[in-house]
Amino acid sequence: MDLTSIRVTTPAGTVELSPDRSHVIGRGREADVPLTDTKVSRRHVELVPEPDGWIARDLSSNGIWRDGARSRQVVVHGEVVLHLGGSNGPRIVLWAPQPQPRPEPEPHGARQAPPMKDNSEAQTVLAGPGARMAPPPPAVPAGAPAGTGTPAPARAGLMRMLPTLIWLAAVGFTLGALVALS
């Protein structure tokens, strides 16, 4: 998972912490995010970067409070509001996006699906059941006189449409005969 930084907003301001290590919020001088409230312990909350996201762990005896209830640890996905040292203690806001999974590499020797064929240039040919496509014309040998081999592009298009045109003419003839007989 790709873990991003975590944003911590306290009464003193906002700081962004990197996911390269754990960080401490507290009253002590060594705290990464210092708070100067008597309800806050020297090492009150540890923010731990985990593969599935950030975790806020209580290190204090006074606790961390979320939505009026005491918690030992809180998963931080999106915005999380905590109070330190009691439900009316200093308010901190943690914000971290949910980590996005990395695409998994294909195992060695795994078979991949064959690439999709591009049929955007294909033409529909309506032919009766059992109809077969004509084989492609033979290649023109080098030095052959002009006019031999494949037909001109316009004529080639008409040749491909010929079975469809014949089918449409037969349907038209059949419909005309039915109308005349009724």
Rank of each mutant, 00 (worst) to 15 (best):
146 A>C: 00
170 A>M: 15
171 V>N: 03
159 M>V: 11
26 G>N: 05
82 L>V: 13
3 L>H: 03
165 L>S: 13
51 P>D: 15
35 L>D: 08
127 A>V: 04
153 P>C: 09
170 A>K: 07
126 L>W: 04
52 D>H: 12
12 A>N: 03
12 A>S: 15
157 G>R: 15
166 I>A: 15
126 L>M: 05
89 G>H: 07
15 V>A: 13
18 S>L: 06
57 R>W: 10
39 K>A: 14
173 F>P: 00
83 H>M: 04
84 L>C: 10
181 L>M: 11
3 L>R: 11
76 V>N: 12
66 R>W: 01
114 P>T: 00
123 Q>S: 06
151 P>M: 12
59 L>Q: 14
11 P>M: 08
36 T>I: 05
99 P>Y: 02
45 V>P: 06
20 D>S: 13
85 G>W: 08
102 R>D: 02
47 L>R: 06
52 D>M: 09
168 L>M: 14
3 L>Y: 01
118 D>M: 00
10 T>S: 15
55 I>N: 06
38 T>I: 03
92 I>W: 01
53 G>W: 07
73 Q>H: 14
181 L>F: 02
106 E>H: 07
47 L>W: 08
130 G>C: 06
105 P>S: 04
78 G>L: 07
68 G>V: 08
104 E>Q: 06
30 E>W: 02
144 A>S: 15
46 E>W: 04
173 F>Y: 14
143 G>L: 08
122 A>L: 04
7 R>H: 06
76 V>H: 09
157 G>I: 03
127 A>P: 00
71 S>L: 00
